[in-house]
Design a binder for these strands. Structure first.
Lengths: 147, 147
DNA sequence: GACACTAAGTTCTTTTTTGGAACCCACTCT
DNA sequence: AGAGTGGGTTCCAAAAAAGAACTTAGTGTC
């Protein structure tokens, strides 16, 4: 498994993790969904080193997850925003949050709750097949290996 | 952000990533869902070093995602199986696969396709709120910060 | 005009993690 | 007796991350 030339890697899990598979990347994405756009703000919130944050932002930009936009001139300053590809990460983030709330202690303390705008109540994420409407579990699907 | 004493970490994303946030862990989980249970088999499939694999398996066991079971005596040999907590990772794996198929090239080559057992067709994963049945997007929810 | 401040980085040095290969142990099989 | 098997551990080199200081192009303050 080579993490650099992933063009040759057929498994989608490996390809996904080549972008997302490290300690910080999804934390950066989380902050972007919370509306954080600027380098210093992220760096302070995450407690990440500036070097690593710069590297992750560069990689996320290269992967097409974030785009870097100037928000002022003299001196030029950039902010980071999610692209459509980045926004498509939302289901991963939600399922991760849902799993962690239920399975990584402490259950009692949480920094965020996702509420339905419709009902105002906490959401209860469920993965279904859009074609049939049935829940997806590892028991009611089969995996066809094509590689 | 301290990755070792995560008891004090209120964000569920951070708590989730303290278990899953590295290059290999979800690859190991993927193999477990594919029915791979033994050390050597994983090591060969993943191309991971034995040292790192042993470390990840230990950590996943500590986190309650896998359990280690003897499958023979003289000499005693162990295999690794997903616990209920590990099986609860399935939605994360499916959303990751779905995102990677659409967003990390090459789209044309894939090692696996997930099929509905009911229809035999590829599934189309969609995250909905079990309470309302409505799709969950970053636009129709609000995040309440409680920490 | 000198000085502090800001935002977005870069450049060091030290510590931690990973990669790669060899070795170990308790068996079984030829 | 010697090779093979399965699940590791040990050792060393290479890569990545942590931590802190420095840079650059400006702005605002004394």
């Amino acid at each position: 498994m080579k993490w650099d030339n992933l063009e040759t890697e057929p498994c989608p899990v490996a390809r996904g993790l080549s972008v997302l598979g490290d300690r910080w990347t999804m934390m950066v994405v989380r902050d972007c969904f919370l509306g954080i756009r600027r380098f210093d703000q992220m760096q302070q919130r995450l407690g990440i080193t500036r070097h690593v944050l710069a590297d992750r932002l560069r990689k996320l930009e290269t992967a097409g997850v974030l785009r870097r936009e100037p928000y002022q001139d003299r001196p030029v300053r950039y902010e980071y925003r999610l692209t459509e590809r980045g926004k498509a990460l939302y289901p991963i983030l939600v399922t991760l949050i849902d799993w962690a709330e239920d399975n990584v202690p402490p259950k009692t303390v949480t920094a965020m709750t996702i509420l339905s705008q419709e009902t105002g109540q906490p959401i209860d994420p469920l993965l279904v097949d859009a074609n049939t409407g049935n829940p997806i579990t590892h028991r009611n699907v089969t995996v066809r290996k094509t590689g």
